[in-house]
């Protein structure tokens, strides 16, 4: 049967109306769904600053390195020693021994230095600064003057990118194993404390020269030298 132009126009109009209604309904339903559901397992952030570090990260203990990289960007940071090669440690060359012995001080001593060399304007070595064995006691009483930015395992896990040594302990696999798998397992058995990043905000803002110290558990203490001098005088 031949369809007239009028009928064609009528059928087209019906189809248009049907399509229009379906699309409008779905747009409204989509909007309703979006506004009434949270983002699931994907964290959503509204930023009021131009940093990648969101002010809410401190509460959640997330990504302390995003704050650190801004804090040290235009500053000179002093560290207690130079980077130490793996040959400095007694487990060097013993990869083929039973148990594949590994001295974790290779990572504890060096990874914050590696991080700071990338992000700070300049890194200086000051050998008068205390060894990691003493650091925790130095700040034990003034710890409440530090802001705890959270656990540093992730930021340290990725410092393999900066480790140029050609030993297996410098690989991505090793770093992931130590800072992730090993850390979680040992923590469950009470033999590992996740390291934290502590910053003294006031001196960080005001001082041009900063100090980065860490203790044997790899907790980082970042502060301006005025704050450190004040602590020393108090002691």
């Amino acid at each position: 049967m031949k369809i007239t132009r009028a009928q064609t126009a009528k059928y087209r109009k019906r189809k248009k109306t049907a399509a229009f209604l379906v699309v409008i309904i779905f747009i409204i339903l989509n909007l309703y769904y979006h506004l009434s559901h949270n983002n699931g397992d994907v964290p959503l952030y509204n930023y009021n600053t131009q940093s990648m570090y969101h002010e809410g990260f401190a509460e959640e203990g997330l990504y302390p390195d995003l704050f650190l990289r801004l804090a040290v960007k235009d500053k000179t940071v002093s560290v207690p020693h130079e980077e130490r090669l793996y040959s400095y440690y007694s487990t060097y060359g013993r990869d083929n021994e039973d148990g594949n012995p590994f001295d974790r001080n290779y990572l504890i001593d060096n990874d914050y230095i590696r991080f700071l060399r990338v992000y700070a304007k300049e890194v200086e070595v000051d050998t008068t600064l205390p060894d990691k064995a003493l650091v925790r006691d130095i700040f034990a009483e003034s710890i409440e003057k530090f802001e705890d930015l959270g656990i540093s395992n992730d930021m340290l896990r990725y410092t393999f990118l900066l480790n140029k040594e050609e030993v297996q302990q410098a690989s991505a696999f090793w770093y992931s194993w130590y800072y992730h798998s090993f850390a979680e397992r040992e923590s469950r058995e009470g033999r590992y404390e996740f390291p934290h990043v502590f910053v003294n905000i006031d001196s960080l803002e005001n001082d041009e020269h900063l100090l980065a110290l860490w203790d044997s558990k790899q907790n980082l203490y970042l502060m301006g030298d005025s704050f450190y001098d004040a602590i020393q005088h108090t002691d």
Binding site: N39, P43, Y45, Y47, V118, Y158
Partner: peptide
């Protein structure tokens, strides 16, 4: 900053730390 963003571990390390 009027428009929100989603940040995950890969955002920070693959697409910020690595480029840096």
């Amino acid at each position: 900053g009027a428009l929100p963003v989603e940040i995950s571990n890969d955002s920070v390390y693959y697409y910020s730390t690595y480029p840096k």
